[in-house]
Design a protein around this nucleic acid. Structure first.
Lengths: 343, 343
DNA sequence: GTGAAAGCGCTAACAT
DNA sequence: ATGTTAGCGCTTTCAC
């Protein structure tokens, strides 16, 4: 397979100038109807495809979008990458992927490279809500950026994410119905807006629902952090009625640890997650969680980004999408993992 | 941040011709020592970085490597992407990522686009061991390809993956020590080499260890497939001593389903996974699995690929890496999930 | 050892 | 409506 068919090959075979061939293919105005047909036919016959590199050099644009995530290994981010990639594909863009491993320095390096590569836009899940502001200062002038899932403190770019407050509310309404009166929190620190907002939502809602908070632990969005959280909560005294976790990964860590230390979920304590990753539906027990509308987030992010690529401007926007509650066994006392013979 | 510093800016400020500047920066032979220093100093001062697009057009190479995976959502593939990306980064290459969603047509489309983009090489996890041969026929002449994790039937490209036979042997030796005499298989169909080889290994080793095979189910590498497998195995009669699964995802499905239908793992039946994804260590029970040496696979794949990029040729190679066994609770009867109070 | 100039493939002024 | 030409930024002959 060798695609060394250039525009001049097409022009030659069609018996026209290379400029006309270019215009005909691009569907630019002043070209006759028949010319367009003729050139297109020849191009198709020869299997011609524009050279994106030459075009990028000439136009200063590459039909490439760079994306930076903190850890591709977290299932939720993998889903997000997949959704963004698909959405970009519809619009004729490719995805240049980079993993910052949570380091702002890595973000800076990647952002520079993206600029050099003439990407048309950048999709980023900022590693740190304050420090990443510096990273984004390295973005080429005029290059559109959209923050996804996590925002930076300063509104320096469009943002698309989930409404954390609403998510927490869905969770609390559910727990309230289940008769929960004491709760604990196992979430992440203030490095990300999700960490901040989910914690804030938890506190506010616990208060408004008249629930007592027995303990709270704030680490990272990881399973290990969930394990540590469980130990912390157990050390604080009697188990609460429910433990609200900042992510599904954390919930998995919490539940695993509780089980190992002899406590049943949901028999002894209810547990909730956040994200709606596949993990929540395959874990045993399945986890009640707040499902993020990943496809909508991706669609919104890409349309916002491409809107600016095509020259759209205006104030930066924050687009908060409504999540939904997905019930699982982890908040259904009848599903206690102690009582087998369920199905 | 605007990096519109071009080579001619550097040349001008250094008071030399653009040709000399280029040579000095590239470290090409006939340039005087002092010239090199002077140009480099100016370049650093101006913050000059070569324009990869212009270079790509001129050289026909882009320092970009395209990678195609069947599903980025499978944790093991996410890990692989991460490892490959990191390895490429060390060598100064970027990753262009594509998800084939398991479709050969998607692979073809992506391979063509990669060619147009002048990628220097392609890393692919083929969707189908026979059909993907067609997809790879669309690779630009001379463009190096390395298959990772799964190979195509015909040796049309270098391959780096795990030694499935050895992996199965580690598993069987372990099960044998545990006194297992009857086994069932929950794996994938013949669409991938991993599906073929793990099944072949299972059959061969069950026979050589004198174990009776009570049932076998072959679907996909998914949790859902594991659920179906569990139902199939239960329908076949009494539970075997152990169920060997073709992947961690399948194992998770199998265990979840068994639990829901009232059977304990490892109390009633031992279960093993394959891949060594994070899932295996966070699931409850943790899963005994065959850990693929992901970093080594990535390092090998990239060095093989870049070796060919730099002109290396020779017969295609198959590089099989040795996996290791990771013990988990799923094959440790003392860890029965029925007996709580373990930790 | 250094400079001048061609040219990678394309698009967009600027002619005609 | 179509052709001619410049030039995006770089590397690399080819002259000197």
């Amino acid at each position: 397979m060798d695609s060394t068919v250039t525009l001049s090959d097409v022009a030659a075979k069609a018996g026209v100038s290379i400029a006309t061939a270019s215009r005909a293919l691009a569907g630019k105005p002043r070209v006759s109807r028949e010319m367009i047909d003729r050139v297109r036919a020849v191009a198709a016959e020869l299997g011609y495809r524009v050279d994106p590199v030459a075009r990028a050099l000439r136009e200063g644009s590459s039909r490439l979008v760079g994306m930076i995530v903190p850890v591709i290994g977290i299932p939720f981010f993998a889903q997000l990458v997949d959704a963004i990639e698909e959405e970009l594909g519809h619009a004729g863009f490719e995805l240049l992927l980079a993993d910052s491993h949570g380091f702002v320095e890595e973000e800076i390096r990647r952002i520079r490279v993206f600029g050099d590569r003439r990407v048309d836009g950048i999709v980023i899940v900022p590693a740190d809500r304050t420090a990443s502001v510096q990273a984004l200062a390295n973005v080429r002038a005029g290059l559109p950026v959209v923050e996804v899932d996590r925002a930076t403190d300063r509104p320096i770019a469009d943002f698309v994410g989930v409404d954390n407050g609403l998510g927490m509310q869905l969770l609390f309404d559910h727990l309230s119905e289940r008769g929960v009166t004491t709760v604990a929190f196992a979430g992440s620190d203030d490095a990300s807006t999700n960490g901040v907002e989910r914690w804030a939502g938890f506190e506010r809602l616990a208060r408004s629902h008249g629930m007592r908070v027995t303990a709270s632990y704030r680490g990272e969005f990881s399973t290990e952090s969930g394990v540590a959280a469980a130990d912390h909560i157990l050390a604080a005294g009697a188990l609460p009625d429910a433990i609200v976790c900042g992510s599904d990964q954390i919930a998995v860590g919490v539940i695993s640890r509780l089980h190992r230390r002899g406590h049943d979920v949901p028999g002894d304590v209810l547990v909730t997650g956040f994200d709606g990753s596949e993990l929540a539906s395959v874990f045993w027990p399945t986890i009640t969680t707040v499902v993020q509308p990943v496809s909508s987030i991706a669609a919104d992010a890409v349309s916002l980004l491409l809107g600016r690529v095509e020259g759209g401007d205006g104030a930066t926007r924050r687009s908060l999408l409504a999540p939904t509650l997905q019930l699982g066994e982890s908040t259904d006392r009848a599903a206690s993992t102690r009582g087998h013979e369920l199905g």
